[in-house]
Every structure is written in C-alpha cells, then in structure tokens.
C-alpha cells in the first residue's frame, strides 16, 4: 500500500501561483489528474516525483517527504513528459542502465522483464533516437517499471500516441492499478481519463476543483447550464415556443448577431426539445452551436460550484 499525500501544498514561481493550497491523497488503483493545459498538473507531478519543492505544505509518500529524499525512488517509477532520453543508447542499453542505477541485483533480468511488459523487445536493439513517439513512451515506461515500483507517476503519457498504442498503454496501466499499485497519470483530455480512471482529481488554474468518482464528476459536468447560439427562420417565434418548456432557463435575442442566445438547464432535455419545438412551429433551424463546450469552460464551471 503506497499512498501519496499532498497536504495544503502551494507552489509559486515569482509572482505566479502555479498550485494553490491543494490537498489530496492518491492511493492504490488508477487515478487521473485532469485539468486544462497550464492548470498546474505538471507542477503537481513534479512535486510528487521530487523534482520541485513545494513553496508551502508537504508532499509525502507513506509519511516520508518526497522532496530532497532520494530513497523514495526505490518505490516510485516516473514517466516524464519530455521526450528526451539518451538517444545514443539502444532501448535495451537504456533500460539496463536504469536497472543498474537502481542497484538491482540482476539488472539484466529486470530489464528483460520490463521490456517484455511493454512489448518492446522487437525494437530493443535500435537506437532510441530512431524511435517513434509511442515507442519512446513505451521504453520510458519500461525504464520506470524496471525496479517493480509501488507507485507509477506519468505526466501526459498519451500525448502523441496513436489509438492502438493508447489502448495498449491503458490496458497496461489498468493492470497495474488492479495489482494494487498506485498509478497516477495526468491528462487534459476528458475522454482519456474517462476510459481509464475511476477516481479523478480535477485541477483548474492551480486549484483543486473536484475529487472523487469519475461518474459523479461527469454528471456535474453535463448537468451544468449549457449555452447555445441558435439561428432560425423565425427567432422570436422559436424563443416564445422554447421558453414555455422547463429545460430552458433563459433566452436572449441578440440583435447584432441576429441569433438567439439560449441557456439550457439540462443538456439531454434541451437537445431533444429544440428540434421537436422547431418542427411543430414550422421553423427552420439554420445554426445550433454550443457556445461554451470548451474544456476550459467545463472546468471553470466546476470551480465556481
């Protein structure tokens, strides 16, 4: 049982606050760290992996501080986001070197096992510089797994992977989680996190926005008021017909845009209602576009609630 505890942690760089008073506990199983780009995910992962000291608060692994404590690496495997590795080494040499650096008793066997785990034996004699992004990612995984760690930290591991590689990696991480290891990965893509992690931590603008079961948070995300921009053959008539229904909270006639700005209460209800109402009233719909579907707006909604 390895547990990473982040206790009232803040981190600032000069005047910029990257992480603002976050507390969370990452236990066994797969946890997704979700947030838009620039939210502070990498800063958090850097602190969890001992490459950044918190400005305030404490980051610990089973009670031991992580910052300036090399002994934690016996338990932690780290897959950094940056691609650069020792490009002049072959995959085999690279993973073997990592095993040796860990001081393992049989580094050769450990390296073989790790490369088999990520299914990279077929390319292990090629120089890392010739690898594709997905291959590099897998060799980096192997180097992180070579000492059989209890904790696996991955910073944006799916970036640049093709769908097949993505599925493979997800399967691997799922297996580790099921084994009782503590797996944490960061992502800015909702669907990735949804497929892999049941437990998620959401970080927005340096703050801890949500924590818990994915489905609950997903519901929060979809149940928020949605805004749409609608153009039709008769905006005023459409507005009158829509406002009568409970799934619409407000409608504004935007004279400049020549469109309706509609605030819907619930996503499902409104999307089925709109075409029905339009059809009944004999109105043609020209444009129906969600005005705030970007991930950032989903996140900022979460923060404000």
């Amino acid at each position: 049982m390895a547990v990473i505890t982040i206790d009232k942690v803040s981190r600032w760089f000069g005047n910029v606050v990257a992480v603002n008073d976050i507390s969370m506990r990452i236990g066994p199983g797969v946890t997704g760290l979700l947030g838009p780009n620039g939210a502070g995910k990498s800063t958090l992962i850097h602190m969890m992996s001992g490459f950044l000291g918190p400005s305030a608060g404490e980051v610990t692994l089973d009670g031991a501080p992580i910052w300036r404590n090399q002994q934690v690496y016996r338990q932690i495997g780290l897959v950094p986001e940056r691609e650069s590795m020792y490009d002049y080494l072959t995959g085999w040499e690279f993973v073997l070197a990592n095993a040796e650096l860990h001081g393992l008793t049989d580094p050769g066997a450990a390296a073989r096992r790790a490369l088999a785990l990520v299914e990279m034996e077929y390319a292990q004699d090629r120089k890392a510089g010739t690898y594709s992004k997905g291959m590099k990612q897998r060799v980096k995984m192997a180097s992180a797994l070579v000492h059989d760690p209890d904790v696996l930290l991955l910073d944006e591991p799916f970036n640049g992977m093709d769908p097949r590689q993505r599925l493979q990696l997800m399967e691997l991480l799922r297996r580790f989680g099921a084994d009782g290891r503590t797996v944490l990965f960061s992502s800015h893509i909702l669907e990735e996190v949804e497929q892999l992690a049941r437990h998620i931590e959401v970080v927005v603008a340096g703050r801890h926005a949500a924590s818990g079961d994915f489905r609950k948070i997903r519901r929060l995300m979809t149940d928020r008021p949605h805004r749409y921009l609608v153009r039709s053959s008769d905006d005023r008539k459409l507005a009158a017909a829509l406002i009568a229904d409970g799934s619409t909270a407000g409608i504004e006639l935007d004279g400049q845009e020549k469109a309706l700005r509609i605030q819907a209460v619930n996503f499902q209800g409104f999307t089925t209602l709109l075409p029905k109402v339009a059809q009944q009233a004999g109105i043609r719909l020209y444009t129906v576009s969600p005005a705030d579907e970007s991930l950032e707006s989903v996140f900022s909604y979460l923060v404000s609630t």
């Binding site: 650069s84 001081g103 180097s143």
Partner: peptide, 15 residues
C-alpha cells in the same frame, strides 16, 4: 538542458 538528467536523478543514488 534536455531533461534526460531525470533518469539519473529518479534513482536512489547519492547526489
């Protein structure tokens, strides 16, 4: 500079 030092530093080696 290129960040590959991570692989040396993420080990239980005295600095």
């Amino acid at each position: 500079d290129d960040g590959s030092i991570v692989y040396l530093l993420s080990k239980p080696l005295p600095r």
